[in-house]
Amino acid sequence: MRDSTRLRTVLAVLLLISLTLVALELRSSGTGFTKSIRTISFNIISPFQKSARSFTDSVQNFGSTWREIRIAREKVKDLESENLDLKEKLANTDENRRRAAELDALLKIAGLGTYEIVPARVIAIGAGQDYSWTVSIDVGSKDGITADMSVISGLGLVGRTISVADSTTLVALLADPSSKVGARIGGKSELGFISGNGLPGELEFEIFDPLSEINEGDRIVTWGSEGGRPFVSGVPIGEVIGVKSSPGLLSKTAKVKPFVKLSTLDLVSVIVEAPRIDPRDSLLPPMPVIPTPTPAITVSPSPSPSQK
């Protein structure tokens, strides 16, 4: 009997603490006490996450060759260490090559748009269990990052920064239900809003003018916020894959597939300085070229005056 009282007391105390946290957070709405708890925990936990991340990397690089190496270990002991060394190097080269290609793409997009960027790696991905899409990256206020900056990858817009600790930053991705981005159709000037609905491969584009013409294959770029924050202008977002016309409504909506694959992010960069000139559509990837049949030209010899 005494025991069940104790059990109930423990449960009641735990629930009370949790409710207090909820109340504090609701009252201060992300500032004050709960904010400082978050900042402290970010600073404590993110080093662990970083080392776990590098551990995961080595496991992934290693995983495919693990079996062969185990056989080799049984056979020749010294060959094993050499083998392992070489194979790990090889796996790393592939990984590095991929990373270099991603960096190249990032530099290209930053150069075209004359953005000033800080490159970063994704260290933790929100599990997506509650359909919120956030990631944390390994740069922070020490690198000059503040909240509400655009985050891009080599292919286009990724999201925006929402909260910053010393060396980690939380990024809300495009697919996050809280995300809303001012956007326009590349090549036309139709304006609208891109919003996330919790799915990584599908965004919603709401166009203000219900009479405007929008087709599948139209590409969407950011429209840009005041002073380039949170979103700089002219960053590619995605491609229209379906138009939903709803007569009677004041706006028209379309489904947009983002250029960036949001579920497998690795290298990204944060735009710390917006360009002075709006790059308009210059950052969009080139349109796929439709081959046009070229008429076969047959050269007929022109009659030349015969020499006599």
Binding site: S18, E25, I37, I45, A124, S132, I162
Partner: peptide, 26 residues
């Protein structure tokens, strides 16, 4: 109950969590 509370608290404060603190621990 103690394990659940601890886990919920850590889920709420660890990056990249950005939801309301305290709900997961309840």
């Amino acid at each position: 109950a103690i394990a659940g509370f601890l886990a919920g608290f850590l889920i709420d404060v660890a990056p990249p969590g950005a939801h309301l603190m305290g709900i997961a621990s309840i």
